[in-house]
């Protein structure tokens, strides 16, 4: 493998450590929630192994638990994961010539918010060796955390397991609130989205809308209103 970029395998592993630790805890929350919704530990781990995304997995979990339609699942995953398409498009500008099509197909699997952010922040171009090493620890952490959470969720007393149900949501709050309190655009997107979501869930006339579609409609409206009011500046 001739890596053209100066970023080494060692550097990728090192950059992956903080993501690994973060993923251990977030996926732990997912594992607990999955078994509390009646999934087996194996199913929870398989979802994490094949999806590697917190919001998409949680939405999928809710649809599966509610026995929702496959088309609802597809719509929800498309919209919730739409941001990854943008990240992948941005990342293509950073890849060097070691990134052949088969290698891109492997690396594309691991485009998450955090891996994207780290890879995108590197100076110069990014090669396949760096990307492989960067994605390896986070993927391991995501699966290990899910396994630990699912096992803990099936072993611990009900009172503790019930309290851990809020874990993933608290992390979402911790992800969203700091930027929302600093950026009017992010705040607007969140407020509109959350407002629509609550209305759809509470109003009896709209209660026919299932949870997956509710997230789709709310998020699209929130992001669209904010993008119309506050178009982002060119970042590069």
């Amino acid at each position: 493998m001739n890596d053209l970029s100066e970023h080494t395998l060692y550097e990728g592993l090192k950059d992956g450590i903080p993501i690994f630790l973060g993923y251990l805890s977030v996926s732990f929350g997912f594992g607990v929630l999955a078994v509390s919704k009646g999934l087996s530990t194996f199913a929870a781990v398989m979802i994490s192994l094949t999806n590697v995304t917190s919001a998409g997995q949680l939405a999928g979990l809710e649809i599966v638990a509610a026995g929702g339609a496959l088309i609802e699942l597809i719509c929800a995953e498309c919209v919730i994961n739409l941001r990854y398409a943008l990240m992948s498009i941005s990342l293509t500008q950073k890849l060097d010539s070691t990134m052949s099509v088969p290698r891109r197909l492997i690396c594309g699997f691991a485009v998450t918010d955090e891996i994207f952010a780290v890879a995108y922040s590197k100076t110069g171009s990014v090669g396949v060796r760096y990307f492989y090493s960067l994605m390896s620890l986070p993927l391991l952490g995501w699966v290990m955390g899910t396994l630990a959470g699912a096992l803990a969720g099936s072993l611990m007393p009900a009172s503790v397991r019930v309290a851990l149900g809020i874990m993933l949501y608290a992390m979402f709050i911790a992800i969203v609130l700091p930027p929302a309190s600093k950026s009017r655009a992010v705040f607007t997107a969140c407020a509109v989205s959350a407002g629509v979501s609550v209305l759809v869930a509470v109003l009896p006339a709209l209660s026919f809308i299932d949870s997956g579609y509710r997230v789709v409609v709310s998020a699209v409206l929130g992001a669209a209103v904010s993008a119309a009011l506050y178009p982002a500046e060119e970042t590069e």
Binding site: R83, D113, A163, A189, C190, A191, A194, S218, P231, A232
Partner: peptide, 29 residues
């Protein structure tokens, strides 16, 4: 398109907000 780029940039936060509210209030005992 500036609108599409902004839309995709704000989308993650909008998604997490809609997933958290109101579901968080039925996430515990």
């Amino acid at each position: 398109s500036r609108f599409v780029r902004s839309f995709l940039q704000y989308m993650p936060y909008a998604v997490l907000s809609a997933m958290t509210l109101p579901a968080v209030f039925s996430s515990t005992g």
